[in-house]
């Protein structure tokens, strides 16, 4: 199977959201597109997570970077964005970029070419090496919305990553656990896009202070499924 072309990412319909004065398109693959800016936002790519584990003698399949970049490539092909924002934890550790294989490095460069690319810094990658191309910033402000890696105080509307939200949904005795967007009135927490990145249940205490007015899970699948609190289960 061709690794670049063969990634199964849903081609289903996206969903339109509004946060502050910003119109957003939530894509079922787990990204946001901001039409007014021509901007694609992806979060928590955690590139080279597997090779990071290998250093501890845990040999996960070393294909996570190419799998993750393939998803980004499909999103870029779908939206042809003028700019891409990677919302932090793009690299799993400080040495991750240096460990990129040549083909993955080239794939990343191809994605960056002809458009603006912004690495928002995260706790895993406080410093993104120059070799990774693009620009760096701790945060980005669009209209009245801030884009940053980890949630800030509840003052400004914001789009963040960091928490890797996942939802567990049960109906008629069966349950499904999937990555999701966590969407509230003033904040959207994006799902992690990294191929080997696990998820934190939306019912976890860490989410509680972030959504004082309630939260909806937009669960990833062939399309986005909007599931409210009563149907969300803890792990």
């Amino acid at each position: 199977m061709n690794a670049m072309g063969g990634e199964a990412i849903p081609a289903g319909e996206a969903q339109v959201l509004r946060l502050g004065r910003l119109d957003l398109v939530a894509d079922p693959a787990g990204a946001l597109f901001i039409p007014d800016e021509g901007m694609l936002v992806v979060a928590d790519l955690h590139l080279e997570k597997a090779s990071s584990f290998a250093g501890r003698g845990v040999f996960l399949p070393p294909y996570d970077t190419r799998a993750t970049l393939a998803v980004v490539a499909r999103l870029v092909a779908r939206y042809a964005p003028r700019a891409v924002v990677a919302l932090g934890d793009s690299f799993h550790d400080a040495g991750a970029h240096a460990r990129l294989e040549v083909r993955d490095r080239e794939a990343l460069a191809a994605l960056q070419s002809g458009r603006d690319w912004l690495w928002v810094t995260g706790n895993h990658d406080p410093e993104v090496p120059r070799a990774a191309g693009g620009e760096r910033a701790a945060e980005l402000r669009l209209a009245d919305v801030v884009l940053r890696h980890a949630p800030g105080d509840n003052g400004t509307a914001e789009i963040v990553g960091h928490l890797h939200p996942a939802a567990r949904v049960r109906l008629t005795g069966r349950s499904v656990r999937r990555r999701c967007f966590a969407a509230g009135a003033r904040r959207i927490v994006m799902p992690a896009l990294g191929a080997l990145t696990g998820g934190l249940n939306l019912r976890d205490a860490a989410f509680r202070p972030l959504f004082p007015d309630g939260v909806t899970a937009l669960v990833l699948g062939q399309r986005l499924y909007a599931i409210g609190w009563p149907l969300l289960l803890p792990d």
Partner: peptide, 11 residues
């Protein structure tokens, strides 16, 4: 997928 759609419909 059916189940998620149903859950959504139930909501």
């Amino acid at each position: 997928e059916h189940m998620l759609a149903e859950a959504e419909a139930a909501m």
